[in-house]
Design a protein around this nucleic acid. Structure first.
Length: 301
DNA sequence: AGCCAGGCCCATT
DNA sequence: AATGGGCATGGC
């Protein structure tokens, strides 16, 4: 896999650790469109079009440096995936029993415990082209406040209407609102775009991030700082750290990860306990492991 | 038609 | 610290 930077595009020759479908549909980002012959992805006020051919991927954009960083193109995901499979999966004697079901088939009721190593192996194969995007911190904070107890289709629509209502108009799309622009949004506006009961969280978060908590946007925030933001609990804070601050030693536990932990890893406990146990296993590679498992589990395995 | 979704806030114990 | 009720909306 060779990566070429041109003035108006990035070309990835013989991509092996880059699949735009995996990257955009693994739940880490909400501002993109599948146009059939290409994906279009938006970040802040930037846009890129991604074409996939037999022998290469072309990322066409006027902001090559921004998207080179955004797609984390300097990282070696081959090495990351290899390391993930050499983790100690037998911590605390919680290794699943022997006699797994076949990998790659639907895990129907019978509860055959799948060895967690085998599950990871299958998950990595399934999402082999996943990369963790380096997204904008503020955009991630607001996006994942909206994500709570919500589904991805709705989240995408709410965020799109948020940009249309408060962001500046670009060439064929609307930028994500800045902190100042988000302050213009009233609770009734956030309700009108479908945010539901999160409308008041968004209004309060906008105030906080322009007021006493604005330091959060200046550096890598602490988890405890993030949880002072209205609408940010343990799981959303971990998503913010992973997707918006580049920390990989966090393991966001949502309904799908919780389900996988009990069904595929033989684990138990509440979500915070689950997160701690998974970080204990995966350490500084937790964020990567989380994405492969989430994408695999949500797709029905 | 209900159940569910990348959970969180708040009151109670 | 731990638990439980309530919650807007719409996709499926």
């Amino acid at each position: 896999m060779e990566i070429l930077k041109k003035s108006d595009r990035i070309i990835i020759v013989n991509p092996v650790d880059f699949d735009i479908k995996h990257i955009l549909e693994c739940g880490q980002v909400f501002r993109f469109k599948d146009l059939g012959d290409r994906y279009v992805v938006f970040s802040k006020s930037f846009k890129a079009e991604v074409f996939t051919y037999d022998d290469r991927v072309e990322i066409i954009t006027s902001d090559v440096e921004y998207f080179y960083n955004y797609f984390d193109l300097s990282a070696d995901y081959g090495s990351i995936k290899k390391q993930l499979l050499s983790m100690d999966y037998n911590q605390g004697g919680k290794e699943a029993k022997e006699g797994f079901s076949e990998i790659g088939t639907k895990n129907t009721q019978k509860h055959p415990k799948i060895c967690s190593y085998e599950y990871m192996s299958a998950a990595i194969e399934f999402g082999s082209g996943i990369r963790i995007l380096k997204q904008d911190l503020f955009e991630v904070i607001i996006s994942f406040i909206i994500s709570a107890n919500n589904n991805i289709k709705r989240i995408q629509g709410i965020i799109e209407r948020l940009c249309e209502g408060l962001g500046i108009k670009m060439d064929g799309f609307y930028a994500f609102p800045t902190p100042e622009q988000l302050l213009k949004g009233s609770v009734s506006f956030f309700e009108s775009i479908g945010a539901g009961y999160r409308a008041k969280y968004l209004a309060m978060a906008a105030k906080q991030l322009s007021g006493q908590l604005k330091q959060i946007l200046k550096k890598t925030p602490a988890r405890s700082e993030l949880q002072q933001i209205m609408g940010v609990g343990p799981k959303v804070a971990d998503c913010i750290l992973l997707f918006g601050a580049g920390l990989k030693n966090v393991f966001p536990v949502d309904v799908w990860i919780a389900k996988s932990f009990s069904e595929d890893f033989g684990g138990s406990g509440n979500r915070e306990q689950t997160a701690r146990e998974l970080v204990k296993i995966f350490g500084s590679l937790s964020g990567y492991a989380q994405q492969y498992i989430y994408y695999y589990k949500r797709s029905g395995y």
